[in-house]
Amino acid sequence: MSTQPTSTDHTSRELPMARSMCWHCQSDVCGEYFCGRCVKVQPLSKELDYFTCMNLPRLLSIDEKTLEDTFYSLSRTFHPDFYATKDEGEKCVSLGNTAILNTAYRTLKNPIQRAEYLIRLEAGSVKDIRSTPPADLFEEILELQEDLDEFRALAGPRDSDRGRELRSKLQNDRATLETRQEQLKARLFGKFQEWDALQISSEATAETQSQKAAVLKAMQEILSNRTYVRNIVNDLIAATS
């Protein structure tokens, strides 16, 4: 493990001015990756969102090939392997940019993470996706939790009749919840299309804005249900296997 103090080049990025000024020669830079004058690599703007970074419209159904092509091409632009012979400042920028790029790619590649990211991006202040049980499953989940607690408490004699009974019950519950997981995913993907349609076709009227807000809210609920169900399924797998 090595430590390094945050270098001055690194902190200069935090300054609002750095966005339009080369960190090295102070020439004007407008979002270009390299300074027009000194040709030094420039830090990615803090305001740059992952969709823009990856050259994609802010849609939830993405063209995976475009995503991968852009990722590979930007990796060729920024990766530290190509800056091993450059000065410390450029090395530092290359490292920071590549870390952002890798996160952007990972986030957009996975549909669930992509949706979570879009919600954060659009809804602004809303932070994490919470974990809440699907309303219609409330009773069932309560019972399941009790069974699970009892089964866990049976640490030793799980071969008893009760143990076997609970195990098979929990295994059934797991199958039910796994089906629900699939349904939630399908519903989420349905919302993807609703979002994309609104995003592509309409102008920014008050009506479409509220429709979009509704889709985002619906997705947020599906995602929080999904997180909840996934955690329980993991608990069930851990307890019964």
Binding site: T3, Q4, T6, H10, T11
Partner: peptide, 20 residues
């Protein structure tokens, strides 16, 4: 980093001061 080795840095959000 690209070596798979961890580097830790810290910065005070209020003062924007970095610390070793």
């Amino acid at each position: 980093d690209a070596n798979g080795i961890l580097n830790v840095t810290a910065a005070d959000i209020r003062t924007r001061e970095s610390q070793t």
